[in-house]
């Protein structure tokens, strides 16, 4: 692949047994490739069926892809390695928040200037990366947050929409910041932001914690419209709406006894 040009056929082909998560071809004809010091961190737990396609899709634009295998019991690590990603393996499952922090630490140690977090289940679109990374790489802000409500949420169940609305309200009341989407795994951090943001929440509450940290540390952030596509696979694999209760309790407990 020539430098300075993004592969146009680089859509993730998420085809496995019973899985078809193929993103439509990238609309833009000239997607700017990301700089070599931009790292994509992909936390993954038992995603062997789709991880290869997700990594392949990322390599279309990103030179550095780091998959953190969070103690998977399937072939996630081998699949990610086969796709060319750097793989870091947690010996036992510690949760998505813990995996993210591990990936961020690795990226920082290897000279990352921008760190992107990207979900491993194929619900994000790699075509959103340039718009997400641009403001951080250009120094316009410290953090960009993907927002499916500014962008597009394909096949989102109504109950999920309701829970996420609740999350937006919760964040506004508890952390005092106004966002249009919470718990979206697609974000970009500047090196400075990645260094100062503390992630103590090993499980899913890390997303609320990151927003709280943005407010606490006075980091400049901006929301960027992104597309999130719900598939049968991602819905089956992903969070249950009832998990939001645990997230709220985990988050509040930690906030009280920090």
């Amino acid at each position: 692949m020539p430098v300075g040009e993004c592969r146009q056929d680089g859509n993730p082909r998420l085809t496995g047994p019973g899985v078809n998560l193929q993103w439509p071809p990238m609309a833009s004809t000239a997607v700017q490739p990301l700089a070599a010091d931009t790292f994509i961190v992909v936390p993954a737990y038992n995603e062997a069926r789709v991880i290869r396609g997700v990594v392949a899709g990322l390599f279309a634009c990103a030179p550095r892809v780091v998959v953190v295998d969070d103690g998977s019991r399937d072939a996630t690590a081998a699949e990610a390695r086969a796709a060319g990603a750097t793989v870091i393996q947690h010996l036992i499952n510690r949760g998505q928040g813990a995996a993210l922090r591990t990936g961020m630490d690795y990226a920082l140690a290897h000279g990352a200037q921008v760190i992107v977090t990207f979900d491993s289940d194929g619900q994000h679109d790699p075509a959103d990366l340039p718009a997400l990374v641009g403001p951080v790489a250009g120094g316009e802000c410290d953090v960009t947050l993907g927002s499916r409500f500014l962008g597009e949420a394909v096949n989102m169940p109504w109950i999920r929409r309701l829970v996420l609305r609740g999350g937006i309200w919760f964040t506004r009341v508890v952390s005092g910041i106004k966002v249009t989407d919470t718990h979206n795994g697609l974000r970009a951090f500047s090196r400075r932001a990645a260094e100062v943001i503390e992630v103590h929440q090993d499980q899913m509450a890390h997303a609320s914690e990151i927003l709280d940290e943005l407010a606490r540390r006075g980091l400049r952030f901006r929301e960027v419209a992104v597309k999130v596509r719900y598939s049968d696979y991602s819905l089956q694999k992903g969070q249950r709406s009832t998990g939001s209760v645990k997230i709220v309790l985990d988050f509040l407990f930690h906030k009280l006894w920090r």
Partner: peptide, 24 residues
Amino acid sequence: LTGLVRKLALREAEQTPSREESPP
């Protein structure tokens, strides 16, 4: 425990030759 698992994972990642320096 998380800190321990993270440290081991990062240490192992440094020891195994990665392909990151040469993109696939």
